[in-house]
Amino acid sequence: MAGCRICKREMLTVQGCAVGTVHINGKVYPRIKAGDERDFNPYMEDGERCGDCGAVKGCFHHFGCDIERCPVCGMQMISCDCEDVYYEWIEEE
């Protein structure tokens, strides 16, 4: 089993990542959800899981997923050329 490095949850037993934003070049952007029209696989069916990270359609991909797109440049998130990219886990009270 594999845990997400940013939300710390087991990837295949939860719906998706709990971190919904990413900081890029000093601005905060919403992450693209699995199955979203801007996702690499926009044709996912309801209840279907991402083939790489296990996120359910409509939920956020887990950190390091090959299929997550960068919300700024549209390229693969794990290898895009955007600078100053980081995720911030904020504990909900």
Rank of each mutant, 00 (worst) to 15 (best):
E45T: 14
K8S: 13
I6Q: 10
E68N: 08
R31Y: 00
E83R: 14
M1R: 12
D39T: 05
M44S: 08
C7T: 04
Y87D: 08
C50P: 00
G20Y: 01
C73T: 04
W89N: 11
D39F: 15
E92G: 14
E92L: 12
M75C: 10
R5W: 09
N41T: 10
P71I: 02
K8I: 10
P30C: 06
Y43D: 15
E37Y: 13
C50I: 00
H61M: 05
F63D: 15
G26V: 07
C7P: 05
M11T: 11
G74N: 04
C73V: 06
M75Y: 09
G58I: 01
M44R: 12
I78A: 09
A2K: 15
V56I: 14
D52M: 03
H62L: 02
V22E: 04
H23I: 12
I78N: 09
K27N: 11
C17F: 01
I32W: 05
V22I: 15
S79H: 08
E83V: 12
C50F: 02
C53R: 03
G51W: 01
G3H: 12
Y43F: 15
T13Q: 10
R69W: 03
D36A: 14
K8L: 15
C70L: 06
C53A: 03
M1V: 15
V85L: 05
D36L: 08
G51S: 06
E83N: 12
H62D: 04
F63C: 10
E10F: 07
S79Y: 03
K8C: 11
S79D: 11
A55M: 04
I67V: 11
A2L: 14
E93Y: 10
W89I: 04
C4L: 05
V56C: 03
A18S: 13
D84I: 00
V19T: 09
R38W: 10
G54K: 00
G35D: 07
L12P: 00
E83Q: 14
D66V: 05
C17I: 00
T13P: 00
G58V: 00
C50T: 01
E92R: 13
K57P: 05
E48D: 07
N41Q: 10
L12G: 10
I90G: 07
C53Y: 00
R31C: 06
E92I: 07
V19D: 03
D84H: 02
V22P: 05
C70G: 09
C4D: 04
M44D: 04
C7N: 04
K33V: 08
D36K: 08
E37G: 09
G58T: 01
K27V: 06
H62Y: 04
I6F: 08
C70N: 06
G64F: 01
G51P: 01
C80Y: 04
C59P: 01
E92V: 09
C59T: 11
I67H: 14
V72D: 10
R9C: 08
V19N: 07
G74L: 01
T21M: 12
R9G: 02
E48P: 02
E37F: 15
M75L: 13
G3R: 15
E10H: 05
D81Y: 11
E48M: 00
G64R: 00
C82Y: 06
I78F: 09
C65T: 07
G51C: 02
K57A: 08
C73A: 08
P71S: 08
